[in-house]
Amino acid sequence: MAKNNYIISLENIDTTYQGDKIPVINNINLKIEYGEFVSIIGSNGAGKTTLLETINGLLTYSKGLGLIFNKEIMENKYEIRKKIGYVIQNFDIDSNAPFLCKDVVMSGKTGKIGSFRFYSKEDWDNIWYSMSLVGMIDFANRPIGKLSGGEFQKILISRALAQKPDLLLLDEPLSNLDFSSRKQIEKLLNRLNKKDHITILMVSHDLSFIPSGCKRIIVMHKGKIISDGNKNEIINSKFIENFFKNEMK
């Protein structure tokens, strides 16, 4: 397999859900370089989440070739996932769930630490640091089910950061946050990308939620990439204006 400089390299990828015949994402060609900050936008059902789940191997692609860190996804899924921090689209958590915030954040590191090893002091230091990055250090011993939607979202982001990832896959990470929290997380993402050189691929359904550090936008529609390019060019283009107008109709 030839080496390339892309952290994500997808060629003619189709992903079909088990039992279905029509692929949810269709003929996806996408190359993302190390250190890029890319946002995917598109309406509901465009295939954004399916694309993220194909990239980290949670869904198996049915056609094409997918390489992450220059390794084929499905054959190396457990290895590559240890270098990917994933923030899932907000899910409902039972208010009586028996988990403390610090345990949830720590669970992000579990795969990386590996089996037959207990948490070290260094691991815990890393957890406190990840929690402090999102301003949630005071919530360490709080039950996870007692948090507000925004606080919960911050814990999920902290969980992904605890993994010390090379690649962050974020599925609408800003959607439940209030204005100040959103600005705080946007600033954090910009910093992680610029200073720590973490590659970020972020899904958003709202153009106004795209952080300033993001320079490239991918537009998805009905399982296909219909536009891919510079953020400012895409946002200011007639194409996107017409696209969202048509969507609203």
Partner: peptide, 23 residues
């Protein structure tokens, strides 16, 4: 005792546990 941390991650959310490299 051996797999406490893996079990806890799975109990919290199976998809997230899988995405962080746990089988």
């Amino acid at each position: 005792l051996i797999f406490y941390k893996e079990l806890m991650a799975i109990m919290f959310n199976r998809k997230l546990a899988e995405s962080s490299g746990i089988n």
